[in-house]
Nucleic acid binder design. Structure first.
Lengths: 211, 211
DNA sequence: TTTGAATCGACCAGGTTGGTCTAATACTTG
DNA sequence: CAAGTATTAGACCAACCTGGTCGATTCAAA
């Protein structure tokens, strides 16, 4: 990236980033076409190479940007003093939706990195990516109160079941509102529905006594 | 498709189909390259167009083939007299794995059709695709004994939670054994693990009295 | 009026595309 | 063995797309 890009108005930066994130996320690095990106971003082809010296340069910039965003605006904000696993996930989902709404392609883009070929990345990006993953793990599992769970179920397995359930719910929501901006959707009934699911999970996996 | 293709030895047919299914599933119709397909199938470029008159012809053939396979070897074999939802899903998973093992790309390929542009398909394929979806629904939900479920949870929601859990488990398995043929994997401990998960679901979502 | 940063899109060489065709080989039948 | 047919690989084609360049133009500041 050059200082040319960073001195753009933030809206324009955001528009270009979103376009690029979208195309990279959907097509993967190799197949992502810079033509498609500039079209989506509504800028001329020349400008992209004026801001970034190559396609790969743009790609690395997006990685760095996404790592930062997910760390600072999402993971770091997860409150690990909440020791109730389900409550923590509940709050985590709210956060995720918030970030997702402003930056819909970052999560998919970061997801694709998991299968990407890191070997050519600069060292500092590899480190930060590894750091992100361990941070994510810690933010989910550190300081969880195991005693809330029924003692006749394997807590580890219950963790998984709860997580899969939440991911499944997220997926169905994505499918349901595929073509709408999230801001245009009234989320309150969805959160209610989500909470009903969480309530079921609670009554199912937590022991009766535990409130 | 021409009779040229169907009179090939079945192994060769299968190899070509698998190659094509794989590429179409991974890249989508437009981007799937016939060059990649013939390379993957280990045949010369000419042969593909000797067997199928065009890329689109091959594509339609694969749709028909996959619809048939999933109907006959998978859905139709699901036993709807089993009214215990979890047991039925358990059996369904076994079937799915069986089919998956012999034909790993059919499910993903069929999955991509959901987002594909049906509008140009011949009428009979549209109908059969619609039929497949209603069949799938029926095979999952018809004749389920609701009384097994705890009466303090919404059965519909419990359905979803259970399904998401199973899908989640399937996904983690796919990731775990991404690069191995399924036949090379010793499945028995996995089935045991799976059954432990099912057991938890049972104790969680079914009422105590219901066995 | 002059400068130079910002912008666009025509353009380039190289590569890939779906599809054709030739020429060689393999197989069958006399 | 010979003749003919079925099968095969891959060189080849025009059309198109690729990442990247560059000259032409605009326009605000000096």
């Amino acid at each position: 990236m050059s200082e040319k890009f960073s001195s753009l108005e933030v809206e324009k930066q955001q528009k270009i980033r979103n376009a690029a994130l979208k195309v990279f996320a959907e097509e993967g690095y190799e197949k992502a076409s810079t033509n498609k990106i500039v079209k989506e971003a509504g800028i001329g082809k020349g400008m992209l190479f004026y801001y970034f010296k190559s396609k790969y340069d743009l790609y690395l910039y997006l990685i760095e940007y996404s790592l930062d965003l997910i760390s600072n605006n999402y993971l770091e904000r997860i409150d690990t003093t909440e020791s109730d696993f389900i409550k923590r996930l509940h709050y985590t989902s709210k956060l995720k939706m918030e970030v997702f709404d402003e930056n819909p392609y970052v999560f998919t883009f970061i997801g694709t990195l998991f299968l990407a070929d890191e070997s050519q990345w600069p060292e500092y990006l590899k480190e930060r990516y590894a750091h992100l993953r361990s941070l994510a793990h810690a933010k989910l599992y550190d300081n969880i109160d195991y005693s809330l769970f029924r003692d006749d179920v394997d807590v580890e397995k219950a963790f998984h079941l709860i997580q899969w359930s939440i991911e499944g719910y997220e997926e169905t929501l994505k499918k349901r509102f595929k073509n709408q901006r999230l801001t245009e959707v009234d989320m309150t009934p969805l959160w209610d529905e989500f909470e009903e699911y969480l309530h079921i999970l609670k009554t199912s996996f937590y022991s009766r006594e535990a409130k």
